[in-house]
């Protein structure tokens, strides 16, 4: 299992996301019970946890898809709980969200998928400039030749890459990855892990990676946190997170490597 090298670009004096006392429940089902979290500039933060523990809920709150019941969620200096929809839209341009199932627009080609945000948010750009930018991001994800294909013609790994390319096209400051390696074969998982690191290095992004895949967590995470009972119970490097006698943490580790 490859471990990530120390990242010199992390700026620990600058927090891009700052969360305190975040609570969220769906009817009687309490998901987050008071989450505190910081994401530093240039850092890859991995959020680990079992299915249904609220990992995806956390990044959906950060991106404004869900609203928090209580607590403070500050993203790039804006409190997402209190800003207007217009301000939220402005903030969203600085956040890239890579969905678990890629969420590519089925009725559009790869090029149209990538053009979709540009047409709406970079109106002063000429078609030639758009084409150049599309070429740059497609080259970054290694799928230049897929430009005219429909999403249904792509494999799972390729769809993930195009999904990442679509979020990169507006040059976000923050990347949110929801289960980037879910449902992929081991080789493609390694390629996606490398791509996440490459994106961090090349585009200088700060990222939150939601996963329960420990190989991915170890390969991409500068810091890891583990969500247990609606709170972050463990935090640190890969070794620090799993250096505990807590049965639930050990079970999570053993299950991953006995698969």
């Amino acid at each position: 299992m490859t471990e990530k090298e120390l990242n010199p670009n992390i700026d620990r004096s600058q927090k891009v996301i700052f969360i305190r006392g975040l609570k969220k429940a769906f009817d009687d089902n309490v998901i987050l019970r008071g989450v505190d979290m910081d994401l530093y500039k240039g850092e890859n933060l991995v959020v680990l946890g079992r299915s249904g523990t609220g990992k995806s809920v956390l990044i959906k709150i950060i991106s404004g898809l869900l609203t928090a019941d209580a607590g403070e969620v500050n993203v790039l200096g804006e409190d997402v709980c209190c800003i207007t929809p217009k301000e939220m839209d402005k903030l969203r341009l600085k956040i890239g969200f890579s969905f678990q199932n890629s969420a590519l627009y089925d009725s559009m080609t790869v090029k149209e998928n990538l053009e979709f945000p540009l047409v709406r948010h970079a109106k002063d750009m000429t078609q030639a400039e758009r084409d150049k930018l599309i070429d740059v991001v497609l080259e970054a994800v290694g799928l230049r030749n897929a430009i005219n294909q429909m999403p249904s013609e792509l494999s799972g790994g390729q769809r993930k890459r195009i999904g990442i390319a679509r979020t990169l096209i507006l040059r976000p400051d923050i990347m949110l990855y929801d289960e980037p390696t879910a449902g992929l074969d081991p080789i493609t998982c390694i390629e996606i892990n490398n791509l996440i690191n490459e994106v961090q290095r090349r585009f200088n992004t700060s990222s939150i990676i939601i996963t329960h895949d420990l190989t991915c967590a170890r390969a991409v995470g500068d810091r890891l946190v583990m969500l247990l009972d609606g709170e972050f119970k463990r935090e640190g490097t890969f070794e620090e997170v799993f250096a505990t006698d807590d049965e639930r943490v050990q079970a999570f580790y053993n299950y991953n490597f006995s698969e």
């Binding site: 969203r92 341009l93 969905f99």
Partner: peptide, 20 residues
């Protein structure tokens, strides 16, 4: 069916997070 499938596959959420 089209919008339903877009909702299920998170395409509507993807539009929203790209400020559309």
């Amino acid at each position: 069916a089209e919008l339903g499938s877009m909702r299920v596959t998170e395409q509507i959420d993807a539009m929203e997070v790209s400020a559309t």
